[in-house]
Write a protein that binds this DNA or RNA. Structure first.
Length: 473
RNA sequence: GGCGCAUUCGUCUAGGGGUUUAGGACGCUGCCCUCUCAAGGCAGAGAUCACCGGUUCGAAUCCGGUAUGCGCUACCA
């Protein structure tokens, strides 16, 4: 237990959280829970242009859905603008940053030119030594930004908990913006100020941030602050091995919820994207993951997201649910997909066990069970015969109906005992014989076991369907 | 272009000098079970550990280079 561990998940509400974001949140949360530390939620809403309405709510909901509770926050950077500005101006006053009045047009033109000349793009430090005659807002038609006065030489060494020592030449760093002309801080400024103020001990974020870490280390030094420990997590890639994004299909976490992935399966699966317990353990409860999670066992290499494996794992979790719980969790999906049907919880509880091991995601349950609810089955009569002659199929149905009329208790065992011998009489194997009945009763060629299905369906519905099948032939 | 990171079966990964004929999982194929579909069981294919050199009695494991991939290179995060 290390109560001094303070970590944060700091998403920007510029879109809905995707698997990568959630994995980052998860690792921070796991680390906090493992160490007995504190998990803080901070919304980095400093980009007014890319802000997406409602994204914060989705982020919060997603964390809650996955069971990742936070101890402090959410804090909003947009509510702390004055403070960032003060810190920015403080650096200007100390000569560690400066106002820049370059217009975006000049900056764009400069970049174009640099690219044309095959030079590394970057700010040309035009305003770095303007002097003091022009300082602050109001002195120019152009609202200025504050830029960091990056050292021109030397090296910045960062020690990453996952990657070890990484060395950057300061000369490759440009004078990045700290405070934008709209008064909002950039990520670099706000992030450092907040991490310091919130006493963050470990910064765990995706590897895409590794390149900007020297800037952050330099900023901490400029403020005279002790930087936190850094751990850059491996990226999660799409099947084409590029950074996960919308074009890879379902990436937003609530899409997975809507498809019927279980949060516990998502936790388990995501925990294994860049972390492992040992050489064989894969299915773990959240408690087990928390107990065993350490940064030492986080891998360095980017992971391609394997949707098929997630689906498999979700199936494992679905099968491990109690029948009651499975039934309860199916309800919303079934109701939504079959809006015209009356879905009684009691009936659903009878149906559920028949499809539990056949579903990999909850959203496919409605397709598996809809025939339990419909009054009239729609199917191609050709399915009824399968490979049998029409006359044979008719005979199968007639004999079954007769046998069933003598059944006292509508129980799967009794029905099977009465019907199975009928196949022999027609010199048919059980497979083809039951096949006819299956289509008659369910309208499809694949279904849960026939007699259990018929028992749940009930006598009236089954008899009606068998007779209806006869009519079709 | 510059800088950085990475590189073990198609994918997720174990392994960190001899215990490895490189282990597990998903997926795939086959067989078994079986009233269909699943689930389950068993088996199989699949990795010269990116490549080249070096260190060493010995390298997937250590070092160097090359290649490739990815990331960053914004008044985005």
């Amino acid at each position: 237990m290390d109560a001094s561990v303070r970590v944060r998940f700091a998403p920007s509400p510029t879109g809905y959280p995707h698997l990568g974001n959630v994995r980052t949140a998860l690792f921070n949360w796991l680390f906090a829970r493992h160490t007995g530390g504190t998990f803080i939620l901070r919304i980095e809403d400093t980009d007014q242009a890319r802000k997406v309405e409602g994204a914060v709510e989705v982020i919060l909901n997603s964390l809650q859905w996955m069971g990742m509770d936070w101890d402090e926050g959410p804090f909003y950077q947009s509510q702390r603008l004055d403070m960032y500005r003060e810190y920015g101006e403080k650096l200007v006053n100390e000569g560690k940053a400066y106002y820049c009045y370059c217009s975006s047009e000049r900056l764009d033109a400069m970049r174009q030119e640099q690219i044309k000349l095959k030079q590394p793009p970057g700010y040309d430090r035009h305003c770095r030594d303007l002097g003091h005659e022009k300082t602050g807002w109001g002195d120019s038609a152009v609202a200025p930004v504050i830029r960091f006065r990056s050292p021109l030489e030397g090296k910045t060494v960062i020690t990453d908990l996952i990657r070890g020592e990484v060395i950057f030449e300061n000369s490759t760093l440009d004078d990045f913006v700290l405070l934008k002309s709209d008064g909002y801080p950039t990520y670099h400024l706000a992030n450092i100020v907040d991490d310091h103020q919130m006493q963050i001990s470990h910064v765990m974020r995706a590897e895409e941030w590794l390149s900007s870490t020297p800037r952050h280390v330099l900023l901490y030094a400029a403020f005279g602050w002790q930087p936190p420990r850094f751990a850059h997590l491996p990226m999660i890639l799409g099947p084409d091995k590029s950074k996960l994004s919308k074009r890879h299909g379902a990436t937003s976490i609530d899409e997975y919820r809507d498809k019927g992935y279980l949060p516990e399966a998502m936790i388990n699966f995501l925990s294994l994207l860049g972390w492992s317990l040992d050489d064989k353990t894969e299915i773990m409860t959240c408690e087990e993951i928390i107990k065993n999670f350490t940064i030492e066992r986080v891998s360095k290499t980017a992971a391609v997201f394997n949707a098929a494996k997630l689906e498999w794992m979700n199936g494992v979790y679905i099968r491990n649910l109690s029948p009651q719980e499975f039934s309860d969790r199916c309800m919303p999906f079934v109701k939504q997909a079959l809006p015209d049907m009356v879905i009684e919880p009691g009936y659903m509880q009878q149906i559920a066990p028949l499809v539990q091991e056949r579903a990999r995601v909850l959203a496919e349950v409605p397709d598996l069970v809809d025939f339990f609810f419909s009054d009239k089955l729609e199917y191609d009569s050709a399915l009824l015969c399968g490979k049998l002659e029409r006359a044979q199929a008719v005979e199968v149905l007639n004999r079954t109906i007769r046998a069933l009329e003598n059944i006292h208790e509508w129980l799967a065992g009794d029905m099977e005992a009465a019907i199975r011998p009928l196949a022999e009489g027609l010199e048919l194997k059980a497979g083809p014989f039951f096949g006819v009945l299956r289509v008659a009763v369910t309208g499809r060629t694949a279904s849960p076991p026939l007699f259990e299905t018929m028992e749940v369906l009930g006598r009236d519905r089954c008899m009606a369907r068998l007779k209806a099948a006869l009519q079709k032939l």
